[in-house]
């Protein structure tokens, strides 16, 4: 029995189609991943809509929503300045979408038989979001500064002979941004979920192997899991914040150059 209960920590990331769909030769089936995107979108929409009462004296819910919008608003204003306000809708959507996806994916819904799927642990998803942010940086940069945007690769005060050396380095670090942006979120989410899965397999296998193993391995693993669950909630918030923060910093580069 213990041998049968083999836990594959990577299995949780498997995408399973729910409804087959084919558009223009591309397989765009509605999958469990898409399902959780839908759930995230619905929950997020309900959350923000609940804060839309527009009361002068806000209730708890409205206060909560206003805290989030104010948080993003302040962040953009601090990083970009007054011009940052027009990016609030995008950065807010980005931050809340990632945050809700991360947290919904952590919910212990497996108890009632529903398996949460954390789509932010797929680099196809985080990659698209990163590319979106990066495209905005490029579009805004070239729109506002034209070809002068290339001066981004030559920091202020670079001595003339150093420019041929510095510029390629700056260019590479600039081009790496979307990858680091997307990979960071994907890796953080995946690592946390794998860790939880591995520890839970210790608990299950240890307990199945007998009371001694259960006490020796299962219990400490379980205690560790509780701590790591709390840590994962923190990571869920931090990674969403980092994604939004870096996006706003990159937009700042495009908006204000140096």
């Amino acid at each position: 029995m213990a041998a049968e209960a083999k836990v594959d920590p990577m299995y949780q990331f498997t995408i399973k189609p729910i409804a087959e769909l084919n558009i223009a030769g591309y397989d765009v089936s509605f999958t469990n991943s898409a399902m959780w995107m839908l759930i995230t979108t619905v929950v997020l929409t309900l959350f923000v809509a609940g804060g839309l009462k527009r009361q002068m004296v806000p209730g708890r819910w409205q206060m909560m929503v206003e805290t989030f919008t104010g948080f993003i608003d302040d962040m953009l204003e601090a990083n970009i300045g007054k011009a940052g306000r027009k990016y609030v809708p995008y950065v807010f959507s980005l931050f809340m979408f990632i945050l809700f996806a991360n947290i919904l994916g952590l919910l212990p819904l497996g108890i009632v038989g529903v398996h949460p799927f954390t789509f932010t642990s797929h680099f196809t998803v985080t990659g698209i979001l990163a590319v979106l942010s990066f495209s905005i940086v490029l579009i805004v940069g070239f729109w506002r500064h034209g070809l002068h945007f290339f001066s981004l690769f030559v920091p202020h005060g670079t001595p003339l002979p150093m420019i041929p050396v510095i510029a390629p380095i700056e260019f590479i670090s600039f081009m790496v941004r979307p990858f680091s942006l997307g990979l960071r979120l994907f890796v953080a989410m995946m690592a946390g979920h794998v860790l939880l899965e591995v520890l839970s397999s210790f608990v299950i296998d240890g307990t199945n192997a007998g009371a001694g193993f259960g006490l020796l391995v299962g219990l400490p693993s379980f205690l560790l899991m509780i701590g790591i669950c709390a840590l994962e909630l923190l990571v869920a918030g931090i990674q969403a914040y980092v994604f939004a923060l870096l996006t706003s910093l990159y937009i700042n580069d495009a908006e204000n150059l140096h």
């Binding site: 995408i15 189609p17 995107m37 995230t40 923000v48 609030v88 809708p89 807010f92 196809t124």
Partner: peptide
């Protein structure tokens, strides 16, 4: 799965951006 992932992400994130980000957030602000 890449096509499905990209497609549905754009659908739902697009919805989030246009309905929540563009529609609701300015009202809250």
């Amino acid at each position: 799965t890449y096509a499905s992932q990209i497609f549905w992400l754009l659908v739902f994130f697009g919805f989030t951006f246009f309905v929540v980000g563009k529609g609701m957030v300015p009202k809250v602000l």
